[in-house]
Design a protein around this nucleic acid. Structure first.
Length: 375
RNA sequence: GUGGGUAUGGCGCAGUCGGCUAGCGCGCCAGAUUGUGGCUCUGGAGGCCGAGGGUUCGAGUCCCUCUAUCCACC
């Protein structure tokens, strides 16, 4: 299933075989929360900008249109017309990030829908059941993502509960995958490590969840307020305690620099809203750093976003034109920016894989970081 | 021509019985944003308060003249 092809230090060049095709890693998963990449990006577009994995969200699809609806329509892949791998996030993070009133108990979490305010209960079994209905390629465990500044005692109790929840997720998935009418009987499950910025809690938690033999393991609860140094430190200390014959996924991260640092520390799956959200806001990633197309200095700039870039935006349009579209709030402006950013990220991951293949990742990373003056 | 209204940053407006560095929205100029509510947040620049004169310790606020503009009537 998961096969390491080459290593350089802790950095891994690997591949993960799934029922929806083989994923080459390190990989960046393109975030499409509600089964859509925001910014009017179609799955046809995704194929043209080197997307390997699309990421959607359990909670968001549960409240709208409803996982039962998607199940009746044949699952997420058929629903959104995307045949390659899809990873669904469990909804644990949404409880942390957007549910105002919430109650976290041993059985799960009670909170209110952000769409219509109605009460929702979600626990490990509910999350996995929804993900099974969505029939994604990879399901994520239902976890709690405590604040990075949460007190030690709280983090300790929370991590212990997340570990118990993982066992329940695992049991429920095994049960569902064994059912006759389950759409994707080979759905994979990734467990999630927690522990905020406390090394010993992280390590202890990593050891515990490693015994559950998941298909992959993620580092959760990072990039939620702590410094880059703290985050790199946690990754460095924790990754060795996660099964190295399984994929390692750093959730929600990050900037191009964050990714390069994490690859070096053994991470091979990433996802982040930056390329899409920042793209919608006119922030573009280039090899010279991030630029803000809203800035007045681009008003008469006839160059493409990035010289030599082969993305759909750079092949044809100028900074001045795209800036105009953004200021005029034309959808095409956002779309072109999102396409460029995702292409940039996916291309960078491709370059990372090539450099690992060639045994020159360290040199590649150094050169890439030196070029990016802004981030 | 007569009567009435209005003139405050690029645009639209607030400015209480005259009282300290004249506010707000949009726009503009920048910055944030890490398992996404196309959201939101944070800064910044920009005003001889239509012009001139007067009253007053003090006028965007009160008085006079002029100018511009809008409405009604002729």
């Amino acid at each position: 299933m998961y096969k390491i092809l080459k290593t350089e230090g802790r950095a891994k060049r690997a591949q993960l075989e799934t029922v929806h095709g083989t994923i080459q890693t390190p990989v960046f998963m393109n975030v499409g929360t509600v089964a859509a990449i925001k910014g009017a990006v179609s799955t046809e577009d995704l194929e043209q900008i080197k997307t390997q994995v699309e990421l959607s969200n359990t909670y968001h699809l549960h409240v709208r249109p409803g996982d039962q609806i998607i199940r009746q329509l044949g699952g997420l892949h058929k629903f959104m017309s995307w045949e390659k791998p899809i990873l669904t996030d469990s909804g644990g993070f949404q409880v942390f990030s957007l549910a105002g009133l919430r109650k976290i108990k041993e059985e799960g979490v009670y909170f209110n829908s952000h769409i219509d305010g109605r009460k929702i209960f979600m626990g490990p079994e509910e999350s996995i059941r929804i993900q099974s209905n969505l029939a994604s390629t990879i399901a994520m465990a239902f976890d709690e993502c405590p604040s990075s500044v949460a007190e030690r005692s709280y983090v300790e109790a929370s991590a212990a509960r997340t570990a118990r929840w993982l066992q329940r997720c695992k049991d429920e998935l095994v049960r569902l995958n064994g059912l006759e009418d389950t759409i994707n009987k080979k759905q994979l499950l990734f467990g999630i490590n927690q522990g905020a910025v406390y090394d010993d809690i992280r390590i202890d938690h990593a050891r515990r969840i490693s015994e559950l033999d998941c298909d992959g393991y993620a580092l959760g609860g990072l990039a939620v307020g702590e410094s880059h140094e703290q985050m790199y430190h946690v990754i460095e200390e924790t990754v060795p305690y996660l099964p190295q014959d399984k994929p390692t996924y750093l959730m929600g991260v990050g900037t191009p620099a964050n990714i390069l640092e994490a690859v070096e520390r053994g991470v091979d799956f990433f996802d982040c809203v930056y390329p899409t959200r920042n793209g919608r806001h006119g922030h573009l990633y280039t090899n010279h750093g991030k630029i803000n197309l809203f800035n007045a200095k681009y008003e008469l700039d006839e160059r493409p976003i990035e010289e030599g870039c082969a993305c759909p935006a750079c092949r044809r349009y100028s900074r001045a034109y795209i800036r105009h579209l953004l200021k005029a709030k034309e959808m095409l402006g956002m779309r072109l920016c999102v396409l460029h950013n995702l292409y940039f990220y996916n291309t960078m991951m491709e370059e990372i894989r090539d450099s690992l293949d060639a045994g020159s990742f360290a040199a590649y990373k150094k050169k890439k970081l030196e070029g990016m003056t802004n981030r």
